[in-house]
Structures are given as C-alpha cells and as structure tokens.
C-alpha cells in the first residue's frame, strides 16, 4: 500500500514538472494556456465578487482556465505592484479601481496606472449624498444650508483617510462650498454602520453599499453623483441637476502588465465585452448591487484621465490634503 502511494506521488510530481515545462506559445492561438487574474483585494471583497463570475465566463469562451489569484494588502497597493511586475506575455491580467490612481496622494509606496495597459471597464459605482432616515435633512438644500450655518459640524463617515469615500467627501465639500468633519472608519461597512447607528450625520459612500438600507427605509438618498439618474432610484436627483457640478465615483476594470501585445489585449477586451452582454452575468451583477457598464480600452482610458484630472484638481487647485506628511 505504502509503495503504491509513493509511486503515485512520484508520478504526480513528475507529471506536474512536465506540465510546467510545456509552455510554448503559438501566436495564432491566444490564449492557449492558463491565464492568471490577479485581484489586489481579498476573497469575498467587492472586486473579488464581481471578477470571479467574469473570469469563469472568459473560461467558457476560451476553453482555458482563468485562475483568480487574490493578492491583498496595503489597500490594493501590494497586488497592483504585483501586476506591474508580472510578465507581459498576455497570460497575466489584473483588476484595477480608482485607488490605483489615488494611491500616489496617500501612500508612500504606490502603483501607477500608467505602468499597466488598460483592457476594459466593467462596472461603474456612483458616489452619493446619504443621510439616516431619521435625519432632519429632507433635501440636499437642507443639508447644505445647515452646513453653511454650522461649518465643520456635520460629521461625515468615510472609508479611511485618503480612501475613496474620503476623496468623494472632499470633492463634494469643495464643490458645495461647505466644511464637514471627516470621520474615518476602516471600510465601507463600518462607515455605513456609523450612519445607521446615528453616530454621524451623512456619508458619500457609493450606492452599492447603501442600496439595501435605502430600500429598507433606514437610510435616505439625498443625491447621487452620476451623470444621469439611477434607473432603480428615479426620484433621486443627481448633484448636477441640483447645481453642484460633481460627477464622481469608482469603477472596476481589467488591466494587463505594460507592454502586453495589443492584439492580445484586444482579444481579452472583446471577450469581456461579450461576457458583459451575457444576461445571467448581468443579472448577477445587478442583483449583487453593481451597475454594469462595459467600456473598451479606449473609453476606459478617458475614465481614468477624468479620475486623474479630478484628483489633480482637488489636490493642486483646491489644496486638499488627504494625509499628513
């Protein structure tokens, strides 16, 4: 029995050595072997939940495994740097969000979105202006009037100093001409809890993390920061309509290490575009609270440039400092 076991193990080991050895690419058939998908966030997180079904859809389209690897740490910094360093043979792709762009303003070690090639955007996540349902503020005007009369009194919960919700809050603050008291929490969930418990007055956390409480009547949306009204909340005005020219929010998309063959990027981009048309995948994403919005690599580049300009404006023109240094 023992001998058989040993034999099996040796066989297994030698087989996998072989498997590693066969790695020749043929240019015409891409992808012809396993593609690694690096997610700089942990299992079960927002990006993970939306990336896995897309990866499995790609698997079905190409007939090769798309293996998801989570490389969490440093709020996405560790994994994003890993993507930058990976080989650009087309067999490594990764995911990105606004934090890859904003990291340089908040972190001493940071990735650069220009060190990777864009593939496509898959979802968009609009920021909001939200209060507790028991709050006296019925409209955005109420909130702004109060804030102008009592500068620095409104407590705004965010997802951490320099993290996305803090950036939205600072931008909203600057554009609305008010001053709020930024209270950092470790993440979206904790920041929303603080608002639910009435420990803070408002938040700018994006819609997917609030929608369940809005639907159950525990929170009230005063405004949404997207370009157009949200289909599920047609009564909620956009900030733009209310005279505050702010369109802000996060996005999630795919990138490849710098220098990946544009042909290969095109192949993956088209496949993601096709995946995003898939009704089951769309339904899954919408049910999970996301807003699917596929953009190809050129359109995605515009989104990134907008985000960069917005941050640039915030930091250089308005002089907002996210962190002490």
């Amino acid at each position: 029995m023992k001998r058989i076991l040993v034999f099996m193990v040796i066989l297994m080991l030698s087989l996998s050595v072989f498997a590693n050895g066969v790695q020749e690419d043929t240019a015409e058939a891409y992808p012809s072997r396993t593609v690694r998908v690096i997610i700089p966030w942990s299992v079960g997180g927002m990006t993970d939940v939306l990336t896995r079904p897309i990866a499995s859809n790609l698997e079905k389209q190409f007939g090769v495994p798309f293996v998801v690897e989570n490389k969490p740490g440093g709020g996405g910094v560790v994994g994003s740097l890993e993507i930058e360093k990976s080989t650009n043979d087309g067999y490594v792709i990764g995911t990105t969000s606004m934090s890859t762009v904003s990291a340089k303003y908040v972190s001493p070690v940071y990735p650069d979105i220009h060190n990777v090639d864009l593939i496509s955007q898959v979802i968009t996540i609009p920021a909001t202006v939200t209060v507790n349902a028991d709050s006296p503020f019925m409209t955005l005007q109420d909130l702004i009037d109060y804030a102008k009369a009592n500068p620095g009194k409104l407590k705004n919960s965010n997802s951490g100093t320099g993290a996305s919700a803090h950036i939205y809050a600072s931008y909203f603050e600057a554009m609305a001409g008010i001053k709020v008291n930024h209270i950092p929490y470790p993440g979206y969930a904790e920041a929303v809890t603080a608002l639910l418990g009435g420990h803070v007055d408002m938040t700018n956390i994006p819609l997917p993390d609030l929608s369940a409480y809005v639907d159950s009547g525990k929170l009230r949306l005063l405004a949404i920061a997207s370009a157009e009204r949200h289909p599920a909340y047609p009564d909620v005005p956009t900030l733009k309509e209310l005279g505050i020219d702010v369109v802000m929010g996060n996005y999630s998309g795919f990138v490849a290490p710098k220098g990946t063959d544009p042909e290969k990027i095109k192949i993956i981009d088209d496949a993601i575009g096709k995946a995003m048309q898939d009704p089951t995948l769309r339904k899954f994403l919408i049910d999970a609270g996301y807003q699917p919005l596929y953009l190809d690599h050129t359109q995605f580049a515009n989104v990134i440039t907008d985000a960069e300009n917005q941050l640039e404006y915030l930091v250089n023109e308005l002089g907002v400092e996210f962190v002490d240094d």
Binding site: L5, V6, V9, M12, R36, V67
Partner: peptide, 22 residues
C-alpha cells in the same frame, strides 16, 4: 524519505490542489 515525501505530497494536495494557493 517516506515520511518526507508523504508529508510533501500532503502539503501539495492540501495547498496546491485543494486550496489552489498561487
């Protein structure tokens, strides 16, 4: 040798094959 190879195989099965750790 038997114990070492066996343990390594166990590690390989658990971490690489079941857990698919990269």
């Amino acid at each position: 040798i038997i114990v070492s190879v066996g343990l390594t195989a166990l590690l390989y099965i658990i971490f690489k094959m079941i857990l698919a750790i990269p």
